[in-house]
Write a protein that binds this DNA or RNA. Structure first.
Lengths: 335, 335
DNA sequence: TCGGTCCAGTGTACCGGTTCGCTAGAGGTC
DNA sequence: GACCTCTAGCGAACCGGTACACTGGACCGA
């Protein structure tokens, strides 16, 4: 492995000149730069990340904290990890995975080990205990997820409220006056997961404004139960013929429930939904929908984190990524 | 951030003594060690990973190469990433994600950047171009997946042949004399994915030995087509009533195809299958099956890599992780 | 011709650890 | 008491970069 000294010798210049060429922080004449570049290429030199980190006290690495492993069960996780890594690379950062089951401990160790320049926390919930050490150390970090109290830490999330409004508008624009609102199980709303609540209240508010009557539907847990409960709801002739869905399990099972009853979309039922992008791929869904935007969200997160690292004292930011509605013809126009 | 010098001053000893305590490489008297430990605790000291890496020329980090992003579409990927990170942490390593779309370039940069001590390659196929730079640099690496020619690189994979034998035995033990063998699409067998071939030939061989007649079934691509094709196969009264499945899409769709036809398992059909562990969770499958073992495979991979880093010259290893069969009562006993 | 500017490039200290040769002193032996 | 041995801890060099004060020479104006 060639070092910067080898390159300097090969190019006939000093180590500091080579360094200037490498970092680009100081002017070097084109001729000298060419000599250095040639030497670098000849020796296949590439800077030692650890040495540079030591000298600059910047590791150019970001830590991604995958909390509690609850995320392990989410098929969407991989998409986020890859999107984060891609976005980081674009900004010159690499990504280190922090999967300690105890998220707080993971954060503590990351901060004190100076192995990374900043942290990205996945699956953030309200009153997330991982915020404590970050807040205390005033450590650069970005949350993926938007707790009510971000405790002075930057945060990014999908704009669930905007998504809800889009979907309600889409139904209302098509002439619907009422719709079933298939929500998450009760527990989720109670357990400090804010996105469910943000979606629900925005949906209700917009629906009221647009004169769309929402009929809430509670759905149980477990695919078979979800399917049965959807069947029951779809069968009831009293129920509206439009469905607004914010519940991944219900979205995944809906095609089967519809199939069970011989119902067609959009002829018999209109469907709009907000769900994880990954879900659409796995279950090959074709409903007009708003999907989560892992790439955009992750890019925003990495961008914010890079800025935060550059200026640690600037005020905390919150950013909501507005999703887009993809029309797939699952909504019938009503007179 | 406290440095080793701060700790030394606080404890009233020299930096090298603190280092001896930290690394444990040299005897230090209990009293002195206690003083150092106290100082470390008081100052919340923790070693600077970069500085240590520079001094030891060991980064204690492993790179995980997620190739081509084809993996992005696999819901199983996250399970592997987390299992790798967990296993690495147990051995004192951290994990860096390398997601460059061009896998060869990712490998090259990882090797020359000395940012990691070794590489783990995911989704390895036959004639994987990423093997070239590794082989050339004689760089420590482990493949997840077992190409025919590992080119002198260590490799780990699930023992698909053993899994196939277990499943065939399970059917034969229950008295079945014939079974449908639902395979992957043609293309996969042709495209240098060795696991499909390893499973298939082991299944055929074992079936012959056990006197089980296998009726191969080609399944198309796409969930709806898979479902339809399964329905057709299940409906044909000529076909065997037992199914041996090695095709994730078919496994996922089978419950729906069975439901379509009003068939019950194991009363009407016996089913055994080998599939990704993640699949069973997502689709709530309940077939007697052999599942992929992400945790065991990843642990084996990290172990092998750690050994390889420690002794770069020892001969290359291949290791197959034997999966276990989980009986879930989906096989009927035949007279 | 002399002093002042500017510029490209150099020398050196430093980042925070590890390693290894060295030494002071305790203890043992004759 | 002189000599040897052993041991715990010390000091300095080193890992591979970066950064900054500095220098020698070219150029310019008076």
């Amino acid at each position: 492995m060639a070092t910067i000294g080898d390159v300097a010798r090969e190019a006939g210049v000093s180590r500091s000149t080579v360094s200037s060429v490498l970092t680009g922080r100081k002017y070097v004449s084109p001729e000298t730069r060419a000599k250095v570049d040639a030497a670098v290429a000849k020796l296949q030199f590439s800077v030692n990340a650890g040495a540079r980190a030591l000298a600059t006290s910047r590791t150019m690495a970001l830590g991604v904290v995958v909390g509690f492993h609850e995320a392990e069960f989410s098929p969407a996780l991989a998409a986020y990890l890859i999107a984060l890594s891609d976005a980081a690379r674009e900004q010159g950062y690499s990504v280190v995975l922090l999967t300690e089951p105890d998220g707080v401990e993971a954060v503590r160790r990351a901060i004190s080990g100076r192995q990374v320049d900043g942290l990205i926390l996945l699956n953030v919930v309200d009153d997330d205990p991982r915020l404590e050490p970050i807040n205390q150390a005033r450590y650069p970090a970005v949350l993926l997820g938007m707790p009510q109290d971000t405790r002075g830490v930057d945060a990014v999330d999908l704009d669930f409220a905007a998504g809800a409004s889009m979907l309600v508008d889409h139904l209302a624009d098509a002439g619907h006056r009422e719709a079933l609102f298939v929500e998450w199980p009760e527990e989720l709303y109670a357990s400090g997961s804010t996105y469910a609540n943000r979606f629900a209240s925005a949906a209700r508010e917009r629906a009221e404004r647009r004169g769309l009557r929402l009929v809430p539907v509670a759905v149980p847990v477990g695919p078979e139960q979800v399917r049965a409960s959807l069947r029951a709801v779809l069968q009831d002739p009293e129920n509206p013929r439009a469905l607004l869905i914010h519940n991944d399990a219900a979205v995944a099972m809906l095609p089967f429930a519809l199939h069970d009853l011989g119902l067609e979309v959009p002829a018999d039922r209109s469907v709009v939904s907000l769900h994880a992008a990954e879900l659409a791929r796995l279950y090959v869904l074709s409903f007009t929908s708003v999907e989560s935007e892992p790439v955009a969200v992750c890019q925003a997160a990495v961008e914010m984190l890079a800025k935060r690292i550059a200026s640690p004292e600037s005020p905390a930011q919150k950013r909501l990524v507005v999703p887009h509605l993809e029309a797939k013809g699952s909504v019938a126009t009503v007179a």
